[in-house]
């Protein structure tokens, strides 16, 4: 349980933000915190695939895109009931994950990376082609879902969703299902010969992670009051991978810590210079080359 402490600490911090923002930062701070939490949900779900399942998906942002567009289109068309939106999102995301998962999971290694990347691009271009809903430019939303009208409710719903996602993934990883998934990451042939159907289990994990990220997309649409194809761009999938690796793959707290660090780094660097990517790019290379195990390992080594 000790390894969960950094995540629990991060949750407490998020819970305190609305109160803190009254003294410093105001709505800038709360919206920053909401962005970090949504990113964390995406990363927590991606870590089930990368960190625990050994499936390096490079198209995970597509699910965020799907979720935000389902919400965006529903809200534009006058459907503001959150339950309906969520039901639609879960259905569409699960279907998309199922179809693309069946094809992608026939391959492994680098082919899997490229295929998930390509499916992500497919979503990106499809969203860009929706000319009735903003096309390339994205779509400004005039309503939030009815349940999210109050800012505080939205904030704590996002926090609630993050805690729930994290708890769910933690339980899954420690379950029977998770054990097989983790074992297959290390030695697939062995797990197969023990009589497990690795394909089916990976596909299940892929669908779970996809649906979870799509729900994060719904929250994102409501928080930003704007949806854009850029949410599904492959660079955003890259960001999600960065968050997972930066925080520490396959650890209890890594994805949450990574999201916090990523948002802080992005904000910190971009306040220094407009061209913050000139610093972030090389930093990323240095992290890959010289820092193994991510932020979570700093904590785990101590205790």
């Amino acid at each position: 349980m000790r390894n969960a402490l950094p995540a629990l600490f991060a949750f407490a911090l998020f819970a305190a933000v609305p109160w803190l923002s009254e003294y410093w930062g105001g709505s800038y701070l709360t919206s920053l915190a909401m962005r970090a939490m949504i990113l964390a949900i995406g990363a927590v779900s991606l870590d089930l695939l990368i960190g625990h399942g050994g499936m390096v998906s490079f198209g995970h942002a597509a699910f965020l895109g799907i979720g935000s567009y389902v919400a965006g289109i529903a809200l534009t068309e006058g459907t503001t009931d959150l339950t309906t939106i969520l039901a639609l999102t879960v259905g569409i995301a699960a279907l998309f994950a199922l179809v693309t998962g069946v094809i992608s999971l026939r391959t492994t290694g680098v082919s899997f990376i490229m295929i998930t990347l390509a499916f992500g691009q497919m979503v990106f271009f499809t969203l860009s082609a929706l000319s009735d809903y903003g096309g390339d430019d994205g779509l400004t939303l005039w309503d939030r879902a009815t349940a999210f009208e109050e800012d505080t409710v939205l904030y704590f719903s996002i926090l609630g969703a993050l805690v729930a996602s994290w708890f769910l993934i933690t339980r899954i990883v420690g379950s029977r299902f998770g054990r097989v998934l983790r074992a297959a990451k290390q030695n697939e042939a062995r797990v197969e010969t023990l009589g497990y159907g690795v394909f089916g289990m990976r596909l299940t994990a892929y669908v779970i992670a996809g649906v979870m990220a799509a729900i994060a997309g719904v929250l994102l649409a409501n928080q930003a009051e704007f949806v854009s194809p850029a949410t599904a761009a492959w660079q955003r999938s890259g960001d999600l991978i960065i968050v997972v690796v930066l925080g520490g793959m396959g650890t209890r707290s890594g994805a949450v810590l990574g999201a916090l660090a990523f948002v802080a780094l992005e904000e910190g660097l971009s306040s220094l210079t407009h061209d913050w990517r000139l610093i972030f790019g090389p930093l990323l290379i240095l992290i890959v080359l010289y820092a193994k195990g991510g932020l979570a390992s700093l904590w785990e080594r101590r205790v």
């Binding site: 390096v56 960065i242 790019g281 990323l284 890959v288």
Partner: peptide, 12 residues
């Protein structure tokens, strides 16, 4: 993937 992604960010 990550390191070459860093190169892309920088060069773009």
């Amino acid at each position: 993937v990550l390191a070459t992604f860093g190169v892309i960010l920088f060069l773009n």
